[in-house]
Design a protein around this nucleic acid. Structure first.
Lengths: 195, 195
DNA sequence: GGCTTGTCTGACCGATCGGTCAGGGTCTGA
DNA sequence: TCAGACCCTGACCGATCGGTCAGACAAGCC
């Protein structure tokens, strides 16, 4: 055997991505990954310090783009922030569909790992931006529906062309999002809690 | 000790619901549930055949309502089906927020269990109905975003009053859904795949 | 008192998990 | 030729999982 280190390293990474996307992080054992690569579990742990390090390396590119988006967002408010959040997140979700599929449903526990600690804050800021920084419950609810729904849809429609997916999602977001600045539209819900 | 069977049975069920909602089905051990109740793990398995049976009993009411909705839907098409699916699913998701939180992210594996086999079919029919039975990719994508996003939002906003949540979600769905019957609106995407 | 029935438990089981470790091959450069 | 770096592995470890089982204990009936 004894291939070049970078080669095996990459093969393990690719195999892990495939398995994680199907059976999730917790649902995939190091043994599963080793079997898919055709090596021993010990080899996987020779190339990666532990299972978590494998995941972190897999997620690194997506997290970089996510933090970039957060930086862009930090100086904006109102409609501008809303637009940047919408376009930025849809683009990110479409490009990193596989990574989202890996994290799907395992957020609550994975977010406790230091490597992903930033995700929670960033996603909260994204939600705020998409809600137009409004504290109206309906605006916040809609933002959550969109962010979570887009993630799920991207993980599900892995074989739809990127452009199709992106334009469909953007159309939806622009139609669904509450326009910033409108104090209270025609739907007063039950009663607003500005007591 | 030796309480009445129904009492302990109910306590275990309630404890399981609480733990599952926080740490998920896989992430909660029978030991965790037993500790929360204040009994032994063997007691949990005295009242329930196995862990899966516990989950099944927890989900039974929600699944009943879901199948009812599916029955209502079976005879409908077009805009009527779309409306029934929207109102029915939003109502179901809001009422069974806790159950949705339990299943969150564990669908792919849980759906393989016979007790939940029906969920997959029903959710596909719901998606079709919400998409106005259109095979346009954008309509299907929007339906997935809405169904997944609503589930996630309901699991997250556990302390928002039912009525507020319901009306916000319904407003969103009515705004976001593609009206049935329109052959191709102003957004032609790249090209439609009716080859 | 005995006997049954229902409730509960500690001790145990096999399987699987992530992770460690000593050592075996192979290649390379001095 | 040979030492050392690099790649890889089988065997093993402790922890935890879902689940089993014999038996303890209390209550009710005869």
């Amino acid at each position: 055997m004894a291939r070049a280190v970078s080669e095996t390293h990459g093969e393990i990474l690719a195999a892990a991505a495939r398995r994680f996307a199907v059976t999730g992080y917790r649902g995939t054992s190091l043994q599963d990954i080793a079997r898919e690569v055709g090596c021993s579990k010990a080899t996987v742990l020779y190339h990666f310090a532990n299972k978590e390090a494998l995941l972190a390396e897999l997620m690194a590119p997506a997290i970089t783009v996510l933090t970039d988006l957060d930086d862009q967002l930090s100086g904006l408010t109102g409609a501008a922030a809303q637009e940047v959040a919408a376009v930025g997140f849809v683009d990110l979700a479409v490009r990193f569909r596989r990574e989202i599929a890996v994290l799907r449903g395992e957020f609550p526990e994975l977010l406790r790992q230091p490597a992903f600690a930033c995700i929670q804050q960033i996603s909260e800021r994204l939600r705020d931006a998409l809600a137009g920084h409004s504290d109206r419950p309906s605006a916040r609810i809609i933002a959550v529906v969109l962010l979570a729904g887009i993630s799920e849809a991207c993980a599900e429609f892995v074989d739809v062309p990127e452009d199709d997916l992106r334009s469909a999602l953007l159309t939806l977001v622009r139609r669904a999002v509450e326009p910033v600045g409108t104090p209270l539209p025609q739907t007063p819900m039950t009663e607003d809690k500005d007591s």
